[in-house]
Structures are given as C-alpha cells and as structure tokens.
C-alpha cells in the first residue's frame, strides 16, 4: 500500500506516493520528480554531490529517507536560478569558469548558498571550511573559492544598493 508524502521543492508543493518510505530523498528528486541537478556521488553521505537545503540548512540527501522530509521545504540547485535568471552564485561560477567536469557543482552551489545565507562576508578560510563538506576531484578548488568570494561581493553590493 503506497504511502503519500507531502513537502515542497523549490517553492512548489509536491506529493509523492511510494511503497518504500525509506526511499532516499535523492532518488525521489531524480527518479520521481525528474530533477536531475542533484547528483549521486557515493550514497554514503560523504562526498556532498547530493547537497540540498532542508528548511534552509545544507543536508546530504542520498540516504535521507523521504519520510524525514515530510512537511519540509527543499531547495535544490534548480531552485537557485536558471539561464534566464541566474543566482549570483551561478553567474559567478560561469564567470570564473569554476569547474572541470562539473559533477560536484550542484552540491557545492548549495553549500555555498547556505554559507552566504548565514555569513554574507566570509573569509577565504571560512569558504574553504564550509566547502569541506564537498569533494572536488578535478582540482577546481581555487576557482570555486574565487567564485564564491565574487558572488558574496555582488550579493552584498546588491543588498546595500
């Protein structure tokens, strides 16, 4: 007998019916809702490819059972912005060409968003520390840190202007 789970994703109410209430949120996002931006990297909550915001807090969702997010608000990388209306972080990542393969980016963008929500003027060390929740194997770290610094500056200018 399928069970129904209600929560919101990127500001929209969603309702999914699943036989297995242990289904990870990541699989619900990708396979039920067709949101492919959040990636599977390890299934062990180690690499951060699956980072999403749950009620504003960055959380890895590859093992997080769907029952655990019932009634909560989820933000994924698709919820940050799009080509027509990019989030300042997304624009900064494009400007800085802050990637090689790009597989880790969705999770990193979410971790960076969570950091800037809390700390609009982070130091380089604070950015690096926040991103230690994510693994980048290609070695794009410095570009990524630069992009977050740039986005933070743009967002501060926007907030004060």
């Amino acid at each position: 007998m399928p069970k129904k789970f209600d929560f919101s994703v990127n500001g929209k109410a969603v309702s999914v019916s699943l036989d297995n209430e242990e289904t990870p949120l990541l699989n619900v996002l990708r396979n039920e809702l067709g949101l492919m931006g959040t990636r599977f990297g390890c299934g062990l909550e180690q690499c951060g490819c699956c980072m999403v915001l749950v009620d504003g807090a960055p959380e890895k969702c590859c093992t997080k059972p769907v029952w655990n997010v019932a009634g909560k608000q989820i933000i994924t990388v698709e919820g940050l912005g799009n080509a027509a209306r990019p989030h300042p972080l997304q624009q900064a990542f494009i400007d800085e060409q802050a990637a090689q393969c790009g597989f880790c980016l969705a999770g990193i963008l979410i971790s960076a968003k969570a950091l800037l929500d809390k700390n609009p003027e982070p130091s380089r060390a604070e950015i690096a520390q926040a991103l230690d929740a994510n693994i980048c194997r290609c070695g794009s770290h410095n570009r990524i840190i630069r992009a977050v610094e740039k986005a933070a500056a743009i967002m501060r200018a926007g907030a004060s202007g």
């Binding site: 949101l35 990388v77 997304q90």
Partner: peptide, 22 residues
Amino acid sequence: SNARFDLPGKIFGESAFIHDMQ
C-alpha cells in the same frame, strides 16, 4: 579564453551527464 560550452547546463542543474539519461 572562450567560455566552456558545457558549464552553464551543469551549473543550472540540467541533465548533463550519462547518469541523468532516461
């Protein structure tokens, strides 16, 4: 330094990888 063609899709969370194929 022409910008990479493939990065925007990856940054906006589009289906960009073989893992996303349906």
